[in-house]
Design a protein around this nucleic acid. Structure first.
Lengths: 156, 156
DNA sequence: CAAGATTGAAACCTCAATCTTC
DNA sequence: GAAGATTGAGGTTTCAATCTTG
């Protein structure tokens, strides 16, 4: 994950002056910089538990699924490619948080199953994440939240 | 760079319901998701020129400097560790965009110098980036920009 | 041949250790 | 010893190629 903002220079040297957008700085890089900073805060909080956003995302996906998921299903739910899940599960398995189990009906598939330690750490990590989220959120007034959220939607 | 949002699940499964923040979704992950989406758009645009945000950032840092910079100075300006610059310059040098030159006075230092091709591609890439930025920015009304920018500042 | 998973290679980032030079 | 740069290793992500099974 890109850490922090290396965008300060881009802001000052970009060619946007001609578009008559002075004063308000550059919203695009402000957005990216703010997101990186916030993401870094969440990662730091999870790192205290030996976790990362990527790992917790897989753990929470498994924890909230109604049945054991194949690696392909995990990839679909977290919106990434299969090979990413393969390596993520490699690390989670090395950490003793997840186990690979053969699919009973389709021998091509492999199902990821949380271990006891995995289920415990998922709860712990999610709690830490919620707390970190709330910390960030607390800095923004309630009235501003919906507004910002709407505008963020527009930018995508 | 994290591509797109694998945060849809985190939004629905987070434990923030208890904080009485329903309706407005989750601003924190909306922010991260929006930034990733926008960053992806910028990267895609630069990729058409064989560039990335990371590479262009180094190129533009060199282009706007008043004199040749050491690798350590580049690292300081783009806010990353030295070893990152070493590898970035490795790739830029392989692309023929940058040259390493020995420092005349301090034999420990190495200065990065733009080649002709590097100077040309920097201009090209910066123009493409400005255009991509403007495209994103155009979706947000002028009145909203300063407002969002202020709130983004709060969240960091 | 499609689909599921893995492997190999690459980009991007970080940290710790090392090597040269001051 | 401290500073500048590099190397080695690991994490996260992607793509293309491969291997097994359907």
């Amino acid at each position: 994950v890109l850490k922090y903002l290396y965008y300060s220079r881009m802001n000052q040297a970009d060619g946007l002056a001609e578009t008559a957008e002075h004063g308000a700085g550059n919203l695009v890089f402000s957005l990216i910089a703010a997101a990186h900073a916030v993401e870094g805060q969440l990662e730091d909080r999870l790192a205290e538990h030996g976790l990362s956003l990527a790992k917790l995302n897989v753990l929470s996906t498994l924890a909230t699924a109604s049945e054991a998921l194949t690696l392909g299903e995990v990839a679909a739910r977290i919106h990434c490619v299969r090979s990413n899940v393969t390596q993520l599960v490699d690390r989670l398995e090395a950490d003793g948080l997840v186990r690979r189990e053969p699919d009973p009906v389709d021998r091509r598939s492999i199902r990821a199953v949380l271990t006891e330690a995995g289920r415990r750490l998922q709860r712990e990590g999610q709690a830490a994440l919620d707390e970190a989220q709330a910390t960030v959120l607390a800095r923004v007034g309630g009235a501003d939240r919906a507004l910002v959220e709407r505008i963020l939607g527009l930018m995508q």
